[in-house]
Design a protein around this nucleic acid. Structure first.
Lengths: 158, 158
DNA sequence: GAATCACTGATCATTTTGACTAACATGAAA
DNA sequence: TTTCATGTTAGTCAAAATGATCAGTGATTC
């Protein structure tokens, strides 16, 4: 089942919101909390897991907890013919947490972390040296204004 | 305990990586899998939870599963004196998933989702109308090259 | 009206949990 | 060196949750 082929309904969203607050809450408590039968919650959770509606969980670790207190956005220009090589190479850099390809003059937007500004320089150099990448521009993130969330969206839909 | 005051050690990272693959695995299986005593894993997980090393879990839901198949990066210029107002207002927009303040000429970088390009226009208008925001520039994300991960970082450190 | 579907509320044996032990190793301070 | 604190292991216990069932109920669809 592809993620798009299954749209979450209200019950799904309520389960996800509850799971959001406490990812490891026992199914039974969840059922009680939501006023559903345990079997229902169980079925829903299995479906959610297998439908691909959930991302991998890796986003849960704060980079600052592993000494990566410095965060940055790197925009990169790219020789389009080397896109796949660049992606390959970027994936190999552990400090690269995320990368998207937006429309417009920036070819890649990369989210990276480092231990300190010096280390950030090293990381941005590593990025710049990826095959196909012709130019980069690195901006340190001064403040995490809104940390990634989908809670607001889920709440909005209920 | 602040996030920074406690640095994860190798055991913590192994637990997190395992949890990453299966967030709801029973403590006992986790202990078996990692070759640790259950009590140890139990203690570690309690510490991880209370130390603030974990983010909220909300990042787990794919926006496409709730009909938000279109994703965008909005960069915004800002009248700095209205920063807090702008943050307030942005927080109220459910389609705004994330917002960071980078150094440099862009004041805010916003990650937003929408149902379709038309809806994206609406969302970017909402962003533009936030108090203090003077200019925005919206780029649709064509491809999620590397979805947010910390797995690589955790692996790198082990 | 029959069939399909999701939800309920119940059962069952098995597993996990939380909260305890006591024993052991390591490293630092006295 | 001895002592102390800390983190680990490995064990206990009753209580709770699990996965796998089941039949019954209400809605929706055909």
């Amino acid at each position: 089942m592809t993620p798009e082929s299954y749209q979450l309904d209200d019950t799904d969203r309520r389960i996800l919101l509850a799971l959001d607050e406490d990812p490891r809450v026992p199914t039974m408590m969840l059922a009680q909390r939501l006023g559903l039968a345990r079997g229902t919650v169980q079925t829903r959770m299995e479906r959610l897991a297998s439908s691909g509606a959930l991302r991998p969980n890796s986003s849960r670790v704060k980079p600052s907890s592993v000494g990566r207190g410095v965060s940055a956005v790197v925009s990169a220009e790219l020789d389009q013919s080397h896109l796949e090589d660049a992606i390959e190479a970027l994936s190999r850099i552990p400090e690269v947490l995320e990368c998207v390809a937006p429309a417009g003059d920036t070819d890649l937007l990369i989210r990276a972390v480092a231990t300190d500004p010096d280390d950030l320089y090293r990381v941005s150099e590593e990025i710049r040296l990826c095959p196909g990448i012709t130019r980069t521009s690195t901006s340190m993130i001064l403040r995490d204004v809104i940390p990634y969330r989908t809670t607001a969206l889920l709440n909005h839909l209920s």
